[in-house]
């Protein structure tokens, strides 16, 4: 439902956002993520939103515990960011887009 597939350029950033229903936190996280990606990874990312309410079996694979969780599948290594992604600086650090100051 919230899938966004950006096919305009090579997708070297594969991100997966785990949510559980359309809670305010999830919606906020998705909005925050979209904003950050558009700003820093324009055209090179792909976001897949997984709703665990619909497919709970997927939680185990990525070791999901907290909701929302953002998983950076590519590039390796896998990184995880939990929370509503409201702290942009932390998200950038977490995604390895900015060296830790």
């Amino acid at each position: 439902m919230m899938d966004e597939n950006d096919d305009r350029s090579e997708k070297n950033w594969e991100l997966r956002l785990y949510v559980a229903g359309q809670t305010p936190k999830s919606l906020k996280a998705f909005a925050n993520l979209k904003k950050i990606c558009d700003e820093h990874l324009a055209g090179q990312y792909r976001i897949e939103v997984v709703d665990l309410m619909l497919s709970p079996q997927l939680a185990e694979g990525d070791q999901i515990l907290a909701i929302p969780t953002l998983v950076r599948k590519l590039p390796e290594p896998v990184r995880k960011i939990i929370g509503d992604l409201s702290n942009t600086e932390r998200v950038l650090v977490g995604l390895d887009l900015r060296p830790v100051a």
Partner: peptide, 8 residues
């Protein structure tokens, strides 16, 4: 492996 940003 986990970064916390905001509410969860």
């Amino acid at each position: 492996e986990i970064e916390e940003t905001g509410e969860y």
